[in-house]
């Protein structure tokens, strides 16, 4: 009896963990959907409203984004980083495809209020509207895609910086539970076209994940089939 109970408790907790991880996935995707990278000296941004205005205009004119990405995972325990690569696609109004191709295959699709994940062994589909957490996440995603993610100072403390080549925005979660997993999110925007060039997620203990977006292309044709769950 106790074995069955333990198994059920474990199952329930793992299921709950799945949802939390899924939420984090989506936050990563959302933050990544519009921007860029660079190592340079930043100073506090002088005209934040002008930056937000340009970002909103850029988002409004962007129908699709296609970008390769290189993800670097840095762990204090390792002197080298764990590197993975893949392809990122976005199509308005709410279609996202995040595909890892090296050194493992992993696919995440968000489309029509559904979140879909697939690896070499399993596939899963979540109805975003069936769960309050997913609904919140979806609102967050929509806000980002519409270009007003940076208005969300209710959930994040947002600080703005600028350099000669890029803008740099730091988001620190206000929620303590979220903070245990994610200390801060750093987004770099290319100063020329305001696309995201890099996204850095800093965890507790100074481990971090940096995703560099390269070969970014805006408004190229992407067939809707790319966002279907096959």
């Amino acid at each position: 009896m106790s074995i069955a109970l333990n198994a059920w408790i474990n199952y329930y907790k793992l299921k709950r963990m799945n949802r939390m991880v899924a939420l984090l996935y989506c936050m990563c995707l959302v933050c990544a959907s519009p921007r860029t990278s660079a190592q340079e000296n930043y100073k506090p941004m002088t005209d934040i409203e002008a930056f937000k205005g340009k970002l909103a205009a850029m988002s409004a004119s962007t129908q699709t984004i296609v970008s390769d990405f290189i993800q670097e995972k840095s762990l204090i325990v390792l002197s080298e980083k764990i590197v993975s690569k893949g392809l990122f696609l976005f199509k308005k109004p709410d279609n996202i495809r995040w595909e890892y191709t090296e050194p493992y295959k992993y696919l995440i699709i968000i489309s029509n209020n559904q979140l879909y994940t697939r690896d070499d062994k399993n596939q899963k589909q979540y109805d975003i509207q069936s769960n309050a957490m997913f609904q919140e996440m979806n609102r967050f995603i929509s806000g980002c895609v519409q270009g007003d993610i940076l208005k969300n100072d209710k959930d994040y403390v947002i600080t703005y910086f600028e350099g000669s080549k890029s803008y740099f925005v730091k988001l620190i979660p206000r929620d303590e539970k979220m903070k245990q997993m994610l200390n801060e999110v750093q987004i770099c925007f290319d100063r020329n076209d305001l696309t995201v060039s890099s996204l850095k997620m800093v965890e507790s203990g100074e481990d971090y994940t940096r995703i560099n977006f390269i070969n970014r292309k805006l408004n190229t044709e992407i067939p809707l089939e790319k966002f279907s769950f096959k």
Binding site: L75, L78, Y106, K124
Partner: peptide, 29 residues
Amino acid sequence: NHLGGLMLIKPVHEEDYRVLFITEVGIKV
């Protein structure tokens, strides 16, 4: 139920090991 991710096993010192589980998108679990 299914969980996926990456497991890293790092030998440290003589007979010690550090073992980490991270998600595919890089979140440390």
